[in-house]
Lab assay of single mutants.
Amino acid sequence: SRSVIRSIIKSSKLNIDHKDYLLDLLNDVKGSKDLKEFHKMLTAILA
């Protein structure tokens, strides 16, 4: 869910600018399909 993804971003080791950017992107995501794609992208970034 959106709140879980937000929590993953906030607890990541990324610097604050990257976190803010990803949180802004997350706010722009519409629909469950796009949310799944965003989660895939985030997982790849944090891997």
Rank of each mutant, 00 (worst) to 15 (best):
I16W: 09
H39R: 10
A47M: 08
K30T: 09
M41S: 04
R2W: 06
I45A: 05
R6P: 01
I5M: 05
T43S: 10
D28H: 10
S32H: 12
K19L: 04
L25G: 01
K13W: 11
L23W: 03
A44E: 10
D17E: 14
L22N: 00
L35M: 09
D28R: 15
V29Q: 06
R6L: 05
I45F: 08
L22H: 00
I9Q: 00
V4F: 07
K40T: 09
V29W: 04
A47I: 10
V4D: 08
Y21H: 08
S1N: 11
S32Q: 10
D28P: 02
D20S: 09
L35W: 05
I9R: 03
L22G: 00
I16R: 13
K33N: 10
S12P: 02
K40S: 09
V4K: 10
E37N: 12
M41E: 06
D34A: 15
N15Q: 11
M41C: 09
A44P: 04
D34E: 14
N15Y: 05
D17I: 15
S3T: 09
Y21S: 06
K19R: 05
H18I: 15
L25Q: 05
I9G: 01
N27D: 10
R6F: 02
L26V: 03
F38Q: 00
S12D: 03
S1L: 15
G31S: 14
I45Q: 04
G31I: 05
I8F: 04
V4T: 10
I5S: 02
I9K: 01
I16Q: 15
I5D: 01
Y21W: 09
S1H: 12
S12K: 01
L46F: 05
L14P: 01
N15C: 11
S3E: 12
I16K: 12
N15L: 08
A44H: 07
D20I: 12
I8T: 05
D28L: 15
N27P: 02
D24M: 12
R6G: 05
L25Y: 05
H18A: 12
L25D: 01
I16Y: 10
K30H: 13
D34H: 11
N27F: 06
E37R: 12
D24S: 14
I45R: 01
S1R: 11
H39N: 08
S11V: 05
V4I: 12
D24C: 12
L46M: 07
K40H: 08
K40Q: 09
D20F: 04
N15K: 07
S3G: 10
I45D: 02
N15S: 13
K40I: 13
S7F: 05
Y21T: 07
I45W: 06
F38S: 00
L46A: 02
L23P: 00
D28G: 12
V4R: 11
N15R: 06
S7G: 11
N27T: 08
L14Q: 02
K13N: 15
L35F: 06
L14N: 02
A44F: 06
L42C: 03
T43L: 14
L23F: 05
H18N: 06
K19E: 04
S32Y: 10
L23C: 06
H39F: 15
N27Q: 10
A47V: 09
I45G: 01
S12L: 04
G31E: 07
E37D: 08
L42T: 02
L22C: 03
L22Y: 04
D17H: 11
I45S: 03
N15T: 14
A47T: 11
L46S: 02
I16N: 13
V29E: 03
S7D: 13
L23M: 07
K19I: 12
H18W: 14
S11M: 12
M41D: 04
L46I: 12
K40A: 09
N15P: 12
N27H: 07
D28K: 15
S32R: 10
K30S: 10
S12N: 03
K30N: 08
I16F: 07
F38I: 03
D24H: 14
S3F: 04
D34F: 08
S12Q: 02
R2K: 12
H18T: 14
K19P: 01
S1D: 13
S7W: 06
K13Y: 08
S32P: 12
T43V: 10
L35E: 03
K36Y: 12
I9T: 01
S3I: 08
L42G: 00
K36I: 13
D17R: 05
L46C: 04
H39L: 14
D34Q: 14
K33Y: 06
Y21M: 14
T43W: 08
L14V: 05
F38P: 00
T43D: 12
I16L: 09
S11F: 05
D17N: 09
S12I: 04
V29M: 08
R6Q: 13
D24E: 13
E37Q: 10
K40C: 05
L26E: 01
A47R: 08
S1Q: 09
K13C: 09
K13D: 12
I45P: 00
S11Y: 05
R6M: 09
K36F: 13
D17S: 10
E37S: 09
L35Q: 02
